[in-house]
């Protein structure tokens, strides 16, 4: 079976998926069961890691930033009460300045602080040179936040469009994935169908540069057409790419 082993070692390199597991009877081998349990333990720990907003602000320098919190005061509340994660705390809300700019950028912890810490600065650095004609406010760093918090932030800022970079739910293979949601005309109560999403930005997924190109395309298109969401299809060609491509 040596040839078989060679075939699968080649194939395994083509995907992070857990393919061709060894078996004991019909069950996966004990080794793969324990590997799975370890990965699950890592993911669980990533979710409960505290978000270091000050470190993000430091990484984004010299860009101007502003740190805010949602109404979910802690992680346990955040996990059970998505409604609170979508709204700014009473203390945070008045601190968003009214700027009437084009784009409100938000960086939020979501379910993976590590995803934000690993990739948000790189995406922002890559996207800014691609949108030179657009005016942007300070980058708002939001803790215990869900996607829709960008609606309230964008509305308060008077921005024409919002883009939130947020930590995605950790999986077993990837616990540092970043997603981006773009919403034209941000205001409280926007539905998810009115957003465009770029997901899977991480070391084995979409590169920050590629994500920034798609983001810039979406921002320009949404502003030109005056809409975002399912009616704005991603035709940027920034879609499927080979790993590292």
């Amino acid at each position: 079976m040596a040839g078989e082993v060679d075939v699968w070692s080649k194939l395994r390199a083509l995907t992070p998926a857990r393919v061709a597991l060894d078996r004991s009877g019909d069950a996966p081998s004990l080794r793969s069961v324990l590997d799975f349990q370890l990965a699950h333990a890592h993911a669980r720990d990533a979710i409960h890691t505290a978000f270091d907003a000050a470190a993000i602000a430091e990484a984004l320098k010299p860009r101007e930033t502003l740190s805010v919190e949602s109404r979910a005061g802690d992680r346990a509340t955040y996990l059970k009460r998505p409604d609170l994660g979508r709204r700014l705390s009473e203390a945070s809300a008045p601190r968003i300045p009214r700027l009437d700019c084009d784009v409100a950028f938000v960086v939020a912890d979501g379910l993976s602080a590590t995803g934000v810490e690993s990739h948000a600065a790189a995406v922002l650095d890559a996207v800014m040179p691609l949108i030179p004609s657009l005016t942007v406010g300070p980058v708002v760093i939001a803790s215990q936040a869900r996607v829709a918090i960008a609606d309230e932030i964008g509305e308060r800022m008077g921005a024409r469009i919002s883009a939130i970079l947020i930590g995605e739910r950790p999986g077993l293979s990837v616990s540092d994935s970043l997603g981006i949601y773009v919403t034209y005309g941000p205001r409280i109560g926007r539905s998810d169908a009115e957003r465009n999403c770029i997901s899977n930005i991480h070391g084995h997924g979409l590169t920050p540069r590629r994500a920034a190109e798609t983001l810039a395309w979406l921002l320009h298109q949404a502003l030109d057409r005056g809409l975002s969401g399912v009616r704005l299809k991603d035709e940027s060609g920034g879609g499927p790419r080979l790993v590292g491509g």
């Binding site: 995907t15 998926a17 857990r18 393919v19 996966p28 950790p170």
Partner: peptide, 21 residues
Amino acid sequence: VPGADDVMLSYQSLSFEDMLY
């Protein structure tokens, strides 16, 4: 999904091996 681990959607489902069981 392979090994019960969806590497795109980041959640756990059932594996092909689970069907053998």
